[in-house]
């Protein structure tokens, strides 16, 4: 597989920040009361992630190892502040609805995590792709949760009122935890199934040409892990 595609698929699905790694949870829980908030937060994080990944990747040889965390944080904080100003200027409604969670993008573990684990070691293009993919994976997850909570909690879809039936629970904080938990469970269930099917196919492919015994211990060991 092309390494760029792999980076992208990793960030988007395989290592989905929200459902697989469970990072950036505060924003996920707080800003999924409606689909539009989820999209807004997701795209904001994506923008910061892309910019910070690119800048950090560019500076990865300049920044001494000892001060890398403070340096990353300053870079991320700068990006977030600029984003905050831009949103206040051009999208005031979204700015208002994100409230205190906008400055808190700084401490969103996804961004520092990607800076630390990826951008500080990889070239610029890879880092940019990783940033966008991880960000879009986060956005997709937030949008899915936002749609679910908005549909059930306020009976609307992206602000369009569909019906009057609403369950207040889903817009409350308790509902956020519940929907998030269920989404992770569903994601785990599906990805386990997919992985299982994938392994079974691999195992069949291996068996035919080699005509040897299946490398069973390896697979079962992995599955147990």
């Amino acid at each position: 597989m092309n390494k760029y595609v792999k980076t992208a698929v990793d960030g988007l699905i395989t290592n989905n920040a929200t459902f697989k790694l469970v990072l950036g949870t505060c924003a996920t829980l707080a800003l999924t009361t409606s689909a539009i908030n989820g999209v807004g937060m997701g795209l904001s994080v994506t923008a910061v992630l892309l910019l910070s990944n690119v800048v950090i990747s560019l500076l990865r040889k300049v920044i001494p190892n000892t001060v890398r965390i403070p340096a990353f944080i300053v870079i991320i904080a700068t990006m977030v502040t600029i984003l905050r100003m831009a949103l206040d200027k051009f999208l005031p409604d979204l700015y208002d609805s994100m409230g205190v969670f906008l400055p808190l993008i700084v401490v969103n573990c996804i961004i520092l995590g990607r800076a630390e684990a990826f951008a500080s070691k990889q070239p610029v293009l890879d880092s940019a792709i990783d940033g966008v993919a991880t960000g879009l994976g986060f956005t997709a997850a937030l949008t899915i949760m936002g749609v679910i909570r908005e549909l059930l909690g306020s009976g609307s879809f992206f602000g369009i009122q569909l019906w009057d039936f609403k369950i207040g629970f889903f817009t409350s904080s308790a509902g956020a935890f519940f929907v998030y938990g269920m989404c992770i469970a569903l994601f785990t269930l599906i990805s386990n199934r997919v992985e299982y099917a994938h392994r079974a196919r691999k195992a069949r492919e291996l068996r035919v040409p080699a005509e040897g015994p299946l490398d069973a211990p390896g697979i079962s060991a992995k599955e147990e892990a």
Partner: peptide
């Protein structure tokens, strides 16, 4: 060097 870089970034 670390301080200088950090200061420059800030």
């Amino acid at each position: 060097k670390s301080l200088a870089v950090l200061l420059a970034i800030v």
